[in-house]
C-alpha cells in the first residue's frame, strides 16, 4: 500500500478511537454527577475541553474523506 494512504488510514482510525475514548470520559462526568447532573465549574470545564478535542478529531476525519 502507498505510504501516504497507509498514514491517512492510520490517522482516521486513531481519530475514531480518540473520539470514542473522549466520549467514555464524558460518560464518567455524567456518572459522577448523576442523577441531577449539576456540574461543578471544574467538571464543566473538563467536559468542554473533551468536546473540543472530540470535535477536532471528527473534523480531521471529515477532512480526510
Amino acid at each position: 500500500m502507498d505510504k501516504t494512504i497507509a498514514q491517512r488510514n492510520k490517522q482516521r482510525v486513531e481519530d475514531t478511537f480518540r473520539v470514542l475514548d473522549l466520549m467514555e470520559d464524558v460518560r464518567d462526568i455524567w456518572r459522577d454527577a448523576a442523577p441531577l447532573q449539576n456540574l461543578s465549574e471544574e467538571s464543566r470545564a473538563a467536559l468542554t475541553k473533551k468536546i473540543e478535542k472530540a470535535r477536532k478529531a471528527l473534523d480531521r476525519i471529515e477532512a480526510s474523506l
Binding site: D25, D28, A34
Partner: peptide, 27 residues
Amino acid sequence: IDELALNLNPLQTGGRASAAARKAAAR
C-alpha cells in the same frame, strides 16, 4: 443507566467499569 441514575444494586456497584476499562474493551 449509570449516567442517569444512581444504581444501588450491590451486585453492580463494584463492577461499574472504569473509563479505562471501557476504552480497552472497545479495542
